[in-house]
């Protein structure tokens, strides 16, 4: 059970808490402490809105161990409104044909059990089609 590895990322995982560069205002997710745009230190926490659009996507039918229960599942790169790309699963997709450019919003879901039914539950961000477009 890799408990600390998941635990230390909980803020990022549950709620897309990344960083902002104090120097050039670039928004960073995942957090990486050094701004890739200007090279300055970027350690100020920044909460992302959770809104974005599908940049690319595919479906995994042949999952790695730990993800068998949820296969087949759709994994995507999402372009967040604030700029960064993030890799995440899409969820609540039924009857909805995914396409590049489709607007999505972040939800917090179960990513998997860390080991088995006795192991710790790992929660984190996924994205779904916008529930109520008038609220965006």
């Amino acid at each position: 059970m890799d408990i600390p590895r998941h635990w230390r990322l909980r803020k990022q995982r549950y709620a897309l808490v990344g960083e902002v560069c104090d120097n050039c205002d670039a928004k960073l997710f995942p957090p990486r402490d050094i701004c890739p745009d200007c090279g300055e230190e970027a350690k100020t926490l920044y909460s992302f809105s959770g809104h974005g659009e599908v940049y690319s996507y595919t479906t995994v039918y042949d999952p790695p161990v730990g993800f068998e229960e949820s296969a087949p599942y759709t994994v995507a790169i999402v372009k967040l409104d604030e700029g960064p790309l993030v890799t995440a699963q899409l969820t609540d997709l039924e009857e909805k044909e995914v396409e590049i450019g489709m607007p999505v919003e972040m939800v917090t879901r179960k990513l998997r059990s860390a080991t088995d039914e006795r192991g710790m539950l790992v929660y984190g961000y996924k994205f779904r089609p916008i529930l109520n477009a008038s609220l965006v």
Partner: peptide, 13 residues
């Protein structure tokens, strides 16, 4: 509930 949902995730939303 979906496969990735439970009382924690639903409560969060």
């Amino acid at each position: 509930p979906g496969l990735d949902e439970d009382v924690a995730t639903m409560s969060i939303e």
